[in-house]
């Protein structure tokens, strides 16, 4: 009986998170276009519905009815699988993210996390690197030189920055002493947010995250100017839309993880009832998402060699120094 309740609870949580996430991703595309528009002193989409609010629906319908092309010389299996890998990896990240405090419902204690894994952070990094396969295979299987170039760059860039990304959160791990994301949030309760103890790690994390989700100024794999869309060049219709959704889902996931690790998760300036504690989480994630859109409207794309040099010769040593510094601090404080 307990198992049945557990299954029902998990299915309901998965469906709820998936539905909300898809809605957020759909409207994030609109939000990004609107914010970029305002940054460029124009309105952005405002024709479909009031304030352009039906634009994501129109885009979806359009993508759905487009012709689904598969290049004649493409590796058809991988070509079809690649976008699925991308979106699966991006969405799976939300399985371990704690959205809020435990709530009481029907006499059961329900935590607002789909799965409170003890290896939560490890899971995040494992699944996030799985997403790279989608991009690399997608670029390679289309039998297109630009796609191949994009895939190559994606592979090199994401693997390089994954090292620095993992190292940047190592300081948080050392302080927390656990990989469980729910535990990490609990330890930050009451203004003990990790950003106060690890401010540099937070900045490193944001920079590496940008490279990890292929956003400007690190959008090498799909550099429009020289690669004509890069890895997704041969994709059309819903397969392209899947890549697009994966990109935005990944963006939200990266911000949610930053909120969990550095900004105290659902902990807020004043305490909300447990059933509403997710509001703080959503607000902090939203601010980070806004920052990622804002910086996209500000910074131009770096050159490929500059990206690699920055990753290996600047970020990597600094994140290592951050770990050493954290270690020294902990030894001296006798923690």
């Amino acid at each position: 009986m307990e198992l049945a309740y557990f299954l029902i609870e998990t299915v309901v949580k998965v469906v709820a998170v998936f539905a909300v996430l898809m809605l957020v991703v759909a409207y994030l595309t609109l939000a990004e276009r609107k914010i970029l528009g305002r940054i460029q002193v124009r309105y952005g989409p405002n024709r479909v519905g009031p304030f352009g609010l039906f634009q994501p629906i129109a885009d979806g319908i359009k993508a759905f009815f487009k012709e689904d092309l598969v290049p004649a010389r493409a590796d058809k299996t991988l070509f079809v699988i690649a976008p699925m890998i991308s979106i699966t990896a991006a969405i799976s990240l939300f399985a371990v993210i704690p959205f809020g405090e435990q709530i009481e419902l029907f006499g059961r204690r329900i935590s607002l996390t789909i799965a409170s894994l003890d290896i939560g952070l490890l899971y995040v990094f494992a699944v996030a690197s799985l997403g790279e396969y989608g991009i690399v295979l997608g670029g390679w299987s289309g039998y297109n030189k630009y796609g191949l170039m994009g895939a190559l760059r994606a592979a090199a860039q994401m693997i390089s920055y994954e090292v620095a990304l993992a190292l940047s959160v190592m300081g948080v791990l050392m302080i927390a002493g656990t990989l469980n994301l729910v535990e990490i949030v609990r330890q930050q309760a009451g203004w003990h947010w990790n950003i106060l103890y690890q401010p540099f790690a937070f900045i490193f994390y944001l920079v590496c995250a940008l490279a990890e989700i292929n956003r400007t100024p690190f959008d090498m794999p799909e550099a429009e100017a020289e690669l004509a869309c890069g890895f997704n060049i041969e994709y059309s219709s819903m397969k392209f839309a899947l890549f697009f959704m994966a990109e935005y889902a990944h963006l939200v996931a990266v911000c949610a993880i930053a909120t969990t690790l550095f900004l105290g998760g659902w902990d807020g300036p004043f305490n909300l009832p447990p059933a509403l504690s997710w509001i703080w989480f959503v607000a902090k994630t939203g601010i980070l998402v806004y920052f990622f859109i804002w910086e996209r409207g500000t910074f131009p794309r770096l050159r490929y060699d500059q990206i690699m040099r920055f990753g290996w010769k600047f970020l990597l040593p600094l994140t290592l120094a951050n770990i050493v510094g954290t270690g020294l601090y902990m030894v001296l404080r006798g923690m």
């Binding site: 305002r38 002193v41 124009r42 309105y43 500000t298």
Partner: peptide, 21 residues
């Protein structure tokens, strides 16, 4: 320099669009 760029785009974000509908 990076922060200066961010400040400029933020100022633009809060300015009125010059688009003529």
């Amino acid at each position: 320099a990076l922060l200066k760029g961010l400040r400029l785009t933020l100022a633009m974000f809060f300015s009125r669009p010059i688009t003529i509908q």
